[in-house]
Amino acid sequence: MKVVSGQWSVVSKKRVCRRQKVEGRKLLVLALYCLLPTAYCLLFSSCKREERGYRVEAPAASRINSVRLTELQPGESQPYTPVKNEYEENAYAMNEGKRLFTWFNCVGCHSHGGGGIGPALMDDKWIYGSQPEQIFATIVEGRPNGMPSFRGKIPDYQVWQLAAYVRSMSAQVKSDAAPGRDDDMNVGKPEQNRSKEEPKSGSIPKSAEMP
């Protein structure tokens, strides 16, 4: 009896093992079924990042009509709908913005984000708003006390690229698409590795106040 039961127990152990194996295989298949779509999603999510839109229409400039410099409004205040700048998900466009930031001499006043003659762009203070369309308007219209108007001098899509780059300076954009390196020597952290600043609408700086 003892021997038999021992044999039986060996057999049952084998059976249990086999059952466990089958269940393990099922689990594996299930996991694969779950993982594959996730992998696909991950793959496609990177498409927008890599896309090089040489011939792509930029977000329309007309959409900046919603820009307001003050929150005061007559009557009931209307809800504010920000404009989405698609370039903020695109590494190529933001790098173009970074190149143009030097080319068009933004660095002359704002330095590489730290500010100088002009206000710093990598901090949390935004005098004329931190939203993409507000930055677009600031570049195109110019602002009192020094910021020149680039209307007509920079094509709209390049202004949107610049706006995306300006927002990447204080990490307002996705870090996987933000510029990761500089072409020349830089002592600071690249835009990709900066910690996000919470935008505050800053007051007009002392230097820009009316005398």
Binding site: W103, F104, G152, K153, I154, P155
Partner: peptide, 20 residues
């Protein structure tokens, strides 16, 4: 002089002096 050309190109004898 009033279009994006002036941002990058030079024409000596005018205001356009871009070196890009």
């Amino acid at each position: 002089l009033n279009s994006p050309c002036i941002m990058c190109h030079t024409i000596r004898g005018t205001d356009a002096g871009g070196r890009l």
